[in-house]
Design a protein around this nucleic acid. Structure first.
Lengths: 164, 164
DNA sequence: TCTGATCGTCAACCACGTTGACGAGTTTAG
DNA sequence: CTAAACTCGTCAACGTGGTTGACGATCAGA
């Protein structure tokens, strides 16, 4: 099955893998459902990395270097992500009048729309979890994660944990 | 900061992103710490995908096609992962006497060692979470995730949620 | 025995990350 | 005020992990 060997049965040796797998599966379930819905809402080409990057860009815009810092990746990697977002029409690059080196990356109206929809869909999915788990259990889950996860792991280097 | 914009503050619009981010950050924290420890224990070249793939290969071994199925990726992608694992000495390919098309992918002793250590380290990290959260809260967290996550999202397509 | 499925692999491609280098522009020190 | 130091964006080369399509070899069933 698609079910990971040993992930959900009692198989010894694999036991330790369950907690990370549960966390990843939860993340993945949300992401998959988000994008299924985004396709329906007119954003078929958006990828998981895009939403997080655009969220890091924010309403005011950032430079590519700053984006890299926020995402925990190199400025070159951030630059490539911006290239793709520009290609999709989600962001634009504007020259900075005050500093000729810099180029401000700003959300386009289409980008703002995608971001707004993503947040709304995520809230919807969270509500579905609340239905399944109960409001209190969901809140406990979030509290527990906030407690357990060191702050320096809140990075968006979303594929980077593969990287060199 | 490396902290994701809006991830942990009250910033509106970004609110919906918190739950997925918490899950991913938890996953990532475990993976990062696992690999930091694996480096210390003599497995500096192991990458996150390797442990999951080897876990899917298991003690008995599998074919590349079957590995792809277990991981939720194409047989070609599974084949490439096997190539890398072979290169690192973690697995070997053996001809199947009963079926000349097939090549069994089996863990080498080094691979078994890496897998055993990974499981042990994960259990250790889980124990650390238990210290922080309390045994019951950790159990609740796991139970909640098991409840909330649909079974078909237990896939190891670990980078695949980027993929086309 | 022929037909159809499956196995592994090759080739081309894409997304996302890395490091190193570099010209251009800005800031800071002397 | 100039020289050194830093920062910005970009180019190039490369690695990892994924995709699809194709193809020869092998196996299983009518």
């Amino acid at each position: 099955m698609a079910e990971l060997a040993g992930a959900r049965d009692g198989q010894r040796d694999a036991y330790g893998f369950e907690l990370p797998l549960l966390l990843f599966a939860g993340f993945r379930a949300l992401i998959d459902q988000l994008h299924a819905e985004l396709v329906r809402q007119g954003h078929p080409d958006m990828r998981p990395a895009h939403g997080f990057a655009m969220q890091a860009i924010g309403r005011t815009g950032v430079t590519a270097s700053e984006l890299g810092r926020r995402l925990g990746v190199s400025k070159q990697a951030a630059g490539k992500t911006v290239d793709r977002l520009v290609g999709l029409g989600y962001v634009e690059r504007v020259d900075d009048a005050a500093d000729a080196r810099r180029k401000l990356v700003r959300l386009t109206p289409l980008g703002v729309d995608a971001l707004r929809r993503s947040a709304a869909i995520f809230e919807d999915l969270r509500a579905r979890w609340a239905d399944t788990l109960g409001v209190q259990r969901l809140r406990d889950l979030e509290d527990a994660l906030r407690t357990a996860v060191p702050a320096d792991h809140f990075r968006l280097d979303v594929a980077g944990w593969f990287g060199t």
